[in-house]
Amino acid sequence: MLHCPRTIARTIAYSGLFLATGLGSALAADPTGDWKVADGVANIRVAQCNGSMWGAVAWEQTPGGKDIHNPDASRQTRPTLGMPILIDMKKKAGVDAWEGQVYNAKDGQFYSSTIRPIGTDQLEIQGCVLGFLCGGETWTRVAPPIPSSPANSMAKGAVKGTTPAQAKAGAPVSPKTTGSVNPAPKPAGQKQAAAPSGDVVGDICLLPDIARFAH
């Protein structure tokens, strides 16, 4: 049996604790993956697309939902499945939080928003109107973090010529609006996150409403 001097053993113990704490922090700070919203009616898939966090509806309790509250009448028939919910969220310096906008399908409005992982299994969502009237909820993880991929970083197949502001305003896309797509092919040997059974959304970075300007 090996015997270490007490000071060396203490150093190893402290180092192990530091590494474990660092690993836990790294895992806790990852907002990617699938999250069930507070009322359980939908799962939101969060992925990093060209440096920003985006979230889209990946599953809905009642299939066939439409964006009926969108102020743009031409978009009130678009499917809620695959619809972007978290919009172009940027990492805040020095903290494990991302800022951008959230789309509330219940009233068809966009709100300034912050997402913040709580541990490894919860995601806190805070939204505000013009800096006040703030509210939020906590989502629960239902699928593991999503590894980075060429599609996530480059959003292949992006439709150029549409700005984030136009997307937020509900500008139509060509050739189609957001819906279900097949996952992008992955290079041989690359890991993929486990997808829920029957997943039809795939890589959200390839969804038209995201890919057209996350490139």
Rank of each mutant, 00 (worst) to 15 (best):
A195Q: 14
A20E: 04
W35S: 00
A169L: 13
A29I: 00
D88T: 05
D203W: 13
K66V: 15
E99N: 13
A171Y: 12
Q122A: 13
I87M: 08
N152H: 10
G40I: 06
A9Y: 09
C128H: 06
N104P: 03
G16K: 10
L123I: 01
M53Y: 12
F132G: 00
Q192D: 15
G161S: 07
T163N: 08
T162R: 04
P71L: 12
G94Y: 11
K160D: 08
K191G: 08
K91E: 14
K176D: 06
S74Q: 14
P84N: 13
A42P: 00
A194R: 07
S52D: 15
C128G: 04
K156Q: 12
S15H: 07
M154I: 11
R78W: 12
P175H: 03
I44P: 01
S112N: 15
P196D: 03
Y103P: 00
K168D: 01
M53I: 11
A58W: 02
T21E: 02
G94N: 11
D107P: 08
L17H: 04
A56H: 02
A73G: 09
T163R: 10
D34A: 04
T21K: 06
P84F: 07
C134V: 06
Q192I: 14
I125L: 15
G51I: 09
F18D: 05
Q126E: 07
K176E: 12
E137Q: 15
A195L: 13
P187Q: 11
H215Y: 12
M154V: 07
W98H: 02
A143Y: 02
P31C: 09
L17E: 11
L19N: 08
C205A: 11
D96G: 06
Q122T: 03
D199P: 11
A211I: 10
P5F: 10
Q61L: 13
D209H: 05
V200N: 01
P196M: 04
N43C: 03
E124W: 06
Q166C: 10
G108R: 07
G100E: 03
F213V: 01
Q101S: 13
I12R: 04
V181R: 00
I118H: 03
I146G: 01
P150Q: 10
H3F: 09
A42K: 03
V57I: 13
S148C: 03
